[in-house]
Amino acid sequence: MPPLLEARNISKAFGRFVAVAGVDLVIRKGERRALIGPNGAGKSTLLSILGGQQAGGAGGQVRFDGDDVSGLQPEDLARRGVGRTFQISRTFRKMTVAENMLASLLPRAGLIYSLSTQRLNILREQADAILTEVGLARRSGTIVDEISHGDRKRLEFGMVLATRPRLLLLDEPAAGMGLQERQELMAMMLDQVTRNGITLIFVEHDIDIVFRIADVITVMARGRVFAEGNPQEIASNKDVQDIYLGSGH
């Protein structure tokens, strides 16, 4: 079976600063891949290239499900089944939680240009179902600006779920939360990923979470792949311990 995602020799520079320098990444269907590495290692940039946000000016080739998708726009990738969350979650902050969900359901339902309010009402059921899944059912009528940071992370995850992604790119899904909230959030996300058969690539600084969830860990430093392997291999890799695990992260 061909890999779901095959990225070859990916590179991206901002002016003179080379953020990603010739990275290869091959992800099996159903795999859970963690990207770790110190700040500025190029993890977020790599995710953005895979999600199409930084497609312009990036070098290398990306194949998704056998097709060459290099340089495609985010909307094209989203329609093919690449979903992502952002380091600072992006939601529609002046709209209600339910409206955020509905807006996320429109592309798949083919209703972006529809004028039928009735059709929108039919989507409400689906929206409520997903909100229940991500634990936001009670918040459905609240303006997003007024919900907590953790709830916004849940909402953003739910919005991406609504697009039925096959590959999910999560950028620091658990950042900025207390221990318990983080564990609950990760458990919820993992449950959804498993049940929907979604392949996962995530960037995370919390090493406990990384080692618990990931099948394969890619360690990046200075825009390159520094080491790659299963959690045991990475844990016992002396170089990784030196540059990364030892540095107190």
Partner: peptide, 26 residues
């Protein structure tokens, strides 16, 4: 009616965060 329709919701969403809507498939 337009504002309350799916297209209206799409217009508002894009108005708030075009980046997010693109990542959702708009």
């Amino acid at each position: 009616r337009l504002v309350a329709s799916p297209l209206g919701l799409a217009i508002r969403s894009v108005g708030e965060d075009p980046y997010r809507t693109a990542a959702l498939g708009y």
